[in-house]
Structure formats: C-alpha cells, structure tokens
Computed example of a mutant assay.
Amino acid sequence: MAFIVKQTTLLFVAYASILLLDFIVNKNSLTLKSNYEILLFSLFLLFITQTTSNSNVLISNFFVLLGLRRIVSLHSQKDVKKKLFDAAFWIAIAALFYFWSILFFALIIVSLVLYTDNNVRHWIVPFLGVFTVFIISVATSIVFYDSFFGMFDISPQTSYDFSNYNSLSYLIAITVLLSFGIWSSFFYLKNIKKKKKVFRVSFKLIIIAAIIGFLIVLQVPEKNGSEFLFLFAPLAIIITNYIEIIQEKWFKEVFLSVLFIVPFVLLLL
C-alpha cells in the first residue's frame, strides 16, 4: 500500500511539473504557444526513466520550477520584492530535498544583474527568503527530531566519476539530448535579439538555467541519471523555440521523429 501511495504521489508531482512548465512558458511568452515543450518534457522523462524514480529529485525540481516561475516573471517589474522572496524561498526548499539544486539561487542574482537593478533592497530580499526557510526548518527539526538540523540533508560532496553512464541506453540518451540541445541553443541565442525587448532577459535566464542544470549533472556525487531532470525544463523550452523556426517541413518532421522514437527504443534496451 505504501508503495502504491508513493508511486501515485511521484506521478502527481511529475504531472504537476509538466503543467507548471506549460504555465511558465505561456504566461511569459517563451514560445509561440505550440505546446511542444509539454511533449518534449514528457519525452525527456522517457529518455532517462531514472528521473522519475528518485522522489527527492522529482520534488526538488518541482520547487525549482516554482522558483523559476517567479524569476522569469520579473520582466513585468511588478511586485519585484515579492517575486524575489518567493523565488529564493522555493529554491531553498528545493535544496532541502536535493542539496545541489541550491545552484539555481545564482539565477536570482543573475536576473538582478541583467535587469541592472541598483535597488539595494532587491539584493537583500533573496537572502531573506533563504533565511526564512532556514528558520522554519530549524524550528521543525526541533519539534520533530529534537535537534537543530534534523531536517537538513546537506551533502556538498562532488564527484566526477561518470562511469555510471557507461551503458548503451545512457550513452544514446545523453548524446541525443546534449546534441539536440546544443544545436538548438545556437539558434536560440541568435534569435533572442528578435524577441520583444521586455522578454529578452527571460529568454537569457532560460539558457542560464540550462547551464546550471548541466553543472548540477557534473557536480553531484551520486550519478544515477535522476540529476538530468534539472536540465529537462530549460532544454524543452530551448528546443521548442528551435522547432518553431524550422522552415523545412521535412526536417522538422525528422527532428521531431527522432526525439519521439528514441525514448521508446531505449525502453526496449
């Protein structure tokens, strides 16, 4: 029974993550509303199925997406302090489930730099968000664990041993994801200047989020495949933008067909 409840919860979190990604994209006009990002994110979960088996990573990524939602929406310049606090708050909670997701906090700092925000209060607010989570976690730890840091699962160790990826399924999945992602990124960066000025920073933040996701993959001590989940959302947005500008119909169909067929082939390996 406990197993069924756990798997149902993970399925719900994965589904909620897909809906949240769709909301982020449509609310901030990050694509032409083709909804390819939903398809791609779902396919990426099949590329590396381990991403849905680690509950901590799945939940952490969901909170990262909540934080990303607030960061990307800064382009409106409304309720800036509230958005900065919320973003830091959600990312700090994500770090409680999976330590290395704290790297996404850098996205908040980068957003302030890109918006050339000289308001000192805006630079302080994100740290208050993290501090708030710290205080709540300490209080909860005292109540439930009778210790100050019972809730903290801080594992700052790193590892650059990629031997776990030396299987055919991993090699194919990683090669396809990275090659398609890097190829799409060139066109994504090239077309940022064509976007409306108010949205340009949001598009830049997505590419930076992808870089942070890649850094997490490099840093994590236990490389079991689940860490790639942090790459999926920004990668889905980047590749979607490329698909939308492909002029040749046959090439677009081949491009999508490869992304659609490969994960199902990998399930058979």
Rank of each mutant, 00 (worst) to 15 (best):
L45Q: 08
V110R: 05
D153W: 15
L20C: 09
E253P: 04
I212E: 01
L74A: 04
I102N: 05
F41K: 10
Q7H: 13
I154W: 14
V125M: 04
L269Y: 09
K81M: 09
I261V: 15
T49M: 15
L45M: 14
V265N: 14
D153C: 14
F232C: 03
Q247K: 08
L218F: 03
Y36F: 15
K82Q: 12
W90V: 01
T240R: 04
W123K: 00
Q50L: 06
D22L: 08
L259H: 05
I246N: 06
P221N: 11
E248Q: 14
G213S: 06
F187I: 05
A95K: 06
L68H: 03
T49N: 15
I136M: 13
N28Q: 01
L215F: 12
M151T: 08
F97D: 07
Y36N: 08
I48G: 01
I4E: 09
S163R: 07
A16W: 06
L267D: 15
Q157C: 09
S169R: 05
L65Y: 03
S137E: 01
L269F: 10
Q77M: 10
V254T: 08
L269V: 04
I261K: 12
N241K: 00
E248G: 11
N119K: 01
I211Y: 01
D22A: 09
L229G: 02
A139G: 08
E37P: 12
N35E: 03
S34H: 13
A139R: 03
I216Y: 02
L268S: 09
L235I: 10
K6N: 05
F44M: 04
Y15L: 13
Y170I: 05
L84A: 04
Y160D: 13
L19C: 11
S55F: 10
Y165C: 04
Y160Q: 14
S257Y: 15
L21V: 00
L107P: 00
L171M: 12
L168A: 05
F162C: 00
V254N: 07
I142A: 13
G129N: 03
V217A: 13
T52Q: 13
I38S: 04
F63Q: 02
G67Q: 06
P234M: 04
L128N: 05
A94S: 15
E227N: 12
S147E: 14
E37A: 10
S111E: 00
Y165N: 00
F44S: 02
V57A: 03
